[in-house]
Amino acid sequence: MSFKSPAEVTNSACSVAVAKCSLKFYQMLLLGILAGAYIGFGGFLYTVVTQDLSKYAGMGLSKLLGGASFTVGLMLVVIAGGELFTGNCLIPIGIMKGCVTPGAVAKNWIFVYFSNLIGSILLAYLIFYSGLASELVGANALKIASNKMALAFGPALFRGILCNWLVVLAVWMSMAAEDVASKIFSIFFPIMAFVASGFEHSIANMYFMTIGILLRHNEALIAQAGLTDQALNVLSLKGFMNNIIPVTLGNIVGGVLFVAVFYYLAYKDKLSD
């Protein structure tokens, strides 16, 4: 076959877990900042593509094309190189095999998560000061951020689970691919599916919500977005935390349980020593 079998990918995932847990602090910091920014680039492109598309193509096609545009974020992470918290929800497979410790995984998650946050915020500020988040794009950014921060805990949690099930599957399938073109296709469809479906990604939300908070005092954009006072009030640090906590928890469950645990249990008898 021109790609790795699921059993072979399971072995590769264990090797990747060892490599990721062996990264030095500065490597996790730099690669985590890059990954946060890369996902932010996907988020900004999504905002640009969907700013008025539903008016011409309908809501369904708008979501589909928006999801397709967002895939560039994970492509940059996987192919150019980056450390992404949601993708790293796969590495607990190394704990189950016994090749990495829970402490090493926790250290990677903590360093990478907050490095992703730095990269996401950095990208949001760069977009804000570039002036590109104006008119319809800025209004769309405000609506996206407000909708995310208004989500109740339960829906945010379950959308986070569904999201990272697909995101980690995209990473899993990209590990099966033997060439760059195959990796791109492996990433494209699961990521397009999660975005078009309306699932919630913690690192993407770091960008979306930060740019929304930065734009919340722009009266012209608020009027263009048609936000009510209630929708506007959620654009705050409290709204940020109300979303990011359940979505992050959901992302962990989705990636660890439905990919790492399930595939380890399915193929543990075929793992190399």
Rank of each mutant, 00 (worst) to 15 (best):
F3K: 11
V16N: 04
K24W: 00
L30Y: 12
A35Y: 02
G42D: 09
T47Y: 00
T50I: 12
Y56P: 00
S62M: 11
L65S: 01
G66Y: 06
G66W: 03
A68S: 13
F70V: 14
F70W: 11
V72R: 03
V72F: 13
V77E: 01
I79K: 05
A80D: 00
G81Q: 03
G81P: 10
L84I: 00
T86Y: 02
G87W: 06
G98W: 13
G103I: 13
G103R: 11
V105N: 07
V105R: 03
A106L: 15
W109P: 15
I110W: 01
F111E: 06
G119H: 03
G119P: 09
L126P: 02
F128N: 15
V137I: 15
A139W: 11
A145G: 07
F158K: 01
I161F: 03
W165N: 13
L166H: 12
V167Q: 02
V171C: 09
A176N: 07
A177K: 07
E178K: 12
K183C: 04
P190C: 10
M192R: 04
V195N: 04
S197F: 00
E200V: 12
I203N: 02
M209F: 09
T210V: 03
I213M: 14
L214M: 14
L214N: 09
N218T: 13
A220C: 00
L221K: 08
I222H: 10
L227F: 13
L227H: 12
D229Q: 13
N233E: 07
L235H: 12
L235K: 08
L235Q: 10
F240R: 04
F240Y: 15
N242H: 12
I245V: 15
P246E: 08
P246I: 08
L249N: 09
G250H: 07
G250W: 05
G254R: 02
V259D: 05
F262E: 10
F262Y: 08
Y264V: 04
L271H: 09
S272K: 09
D273Y: 07
D273P: 00
